[in-house]
Design a protein around this nucleic acid. Sequence first.
RNA 1: UGACCGAUGGUGUAACGGUAGCACUACAGUUUUUGGAGCUGUCUGUCCAGGUUCGAAUCCUGGUCGGUCAACCA
Length: 564
Amino acid sequence: MDKAENKTPENKTSLNFLEQIIENDIKAGKNQGRVHTRFPPEPNGYLHIGHAKSICLNFGLALKYNGKTNLRFDDTNPTKESTEYVDAIIEDVKWLGFQWEEPIWYASDYFGKLYEFAEYLIKKGKAFVCDMTAEEMSKGRGTPQMPGVESPWRNRSVEENLDLLDRMRKGEFKEGERVLRAKIDMASPNMWMRDPVMYRIMHAHHHRTGDKWCIYPMYDWAHGQSDYLEGITHSICTLEFENHRPLYEWFLDALDIKESRPRQYEFARLNLSYTVMSKRKLLQLVEEKYVNGWDDPRMPTVSGLRRRGYTPASIRAFSEKVGVAKRENLIDVSLLEFCIREDLNKNAPRVMSVLNPVKLIIDNYPEGQAEELPAIINPEDPDSEKRMVPFSRELYIERDDFMEDPPKKFFRLAPGKEVRLKYAYIIRCDDVVKDEKGEITEIHCTYFPDTKSGMETTRKVKGTLHWVSIAHAEEAEVRLYDRLFTVSEPENGEEGQDFKDFINPDSLKVVKGYCEPFIKTAFAGQGFQFERLGYFAADKDSNPETGLIFNRTVTLRDSWAKSR
RNA sequence: UGACCGAUGGUGUAACGGUAGCACUACAGUUUUUGGAGCUGUCUGUCCAGGUUCGAAUCCUGGUCGGUCAACCA
């Protein structure tokens, strides 16, 4: 690699550590140069942005190196898993834009093969049936500093072990009565090598194998062997499995697997500021109704982000930008927000919408008159078409866009001041009307007909406002989302504090919005820019009865708000 | 206190013994019929102590700090 190449970003040649490993493997001719990855979710919850990173990584690596990626459900614990989750996960992976190698696999596809493997290990004297209770076993395991003690059942005969395993499978024993264990080393400094459990008895109905099995394999026993059976070359998982790698290797060795052998690599999972990422905690938020389901737009789930208005491209871009390494990290949500703004700025149609209205009356505009003004749908798109916006005497503008007694840097409307109404005319504020509480109810203005948008004018204004003609306005329910937590690391509070103590009570505000008629073209999921406000996505619940519903994806950057 | 892993600006991530770069954030300027977007620029960094070397973020030694591991979860 030439040093100079590294400096030119347009032909970026720097690789992350996984790409380096893969390139070395290809060079060395390992696995005949094949690259085959897999994404192995457990169907016990919905996918979140951390999974999205893993998906982009696994599929991205295969794409880059001309390889394949399997989608495999790690369904080894029937008590926690269901087809509801399977379906949702499939939809999310598809939505993110990735194509897995057909068919979809399940660890349960390998239950039969795994059973044969287990018999093989028993015959080699490398596995045994243990009658200890879970509690006894836990005590006997020792501590990281102290060796464990060997099970009294460790040296049963091959015949007895085979017979017992067969009877475990047939359901002759109660749950918890016996397990199959690998015979490794109770004194190992690595806890995972202290005769780990391979099979446990569960009289549970499995979503795919039904009642066929009464024993189910543990993760470590199922995973590496599934990788092997699928011809996986690079089995990529998160850091907490680092200590499992010797066990992963031990099983492959014990099964005498030498050719086409998968290798496990670990990377640091994604952490995002102002949210939580563990499935357990997300489940808690759902079950305890802090949010309205897994796809609540405040959730960091893929389905939540989708409903919030995030696009697949924005999530892929984000996954690219966060990078891949082995150190713990905390990504600032502002990076995620940057990615969706970048996408929507280029692609979202613009529309004017007033969310906190105050009435503005143009006194010198004829009553009953209206005109259609052309407006560009997306100024960032050179091929953008025009939309027509109705203008009339009575408008709504944003309450924040008017101040009776403004500071010097206020570029918006104030008594005696002039602003442009976007795509329309320059107006001057002449007067305000207030109610008995002192609240402004009407702003009276004069418009200048020769300043119509597109006309030459010498009149200069500092501010441009968005507006909606009251008579032509479409009403919509607008859901204003904010971050779900008030602190950047809700999981790292003081002693005795729970992540739920930091839930933001104002994470959702629902308001009525007034939009220009063009909004009627919206379809579910479509993202718009409400000019000067932010990006908003049509909610999937919008229907003729509820009317239009919009979710705020993210606000526009606002240097005015910041400067105050 | 055992094993494994890690440590580069505020946050991420490059640099593979030879000028510490890129992105986000923040700030400033420019521009603007979105206080948006764009463009330009600025600030801030190699955990510590030794050693090897002409030269160390990079190699070695020793510390410090952080993460993971004692489920019949994954």
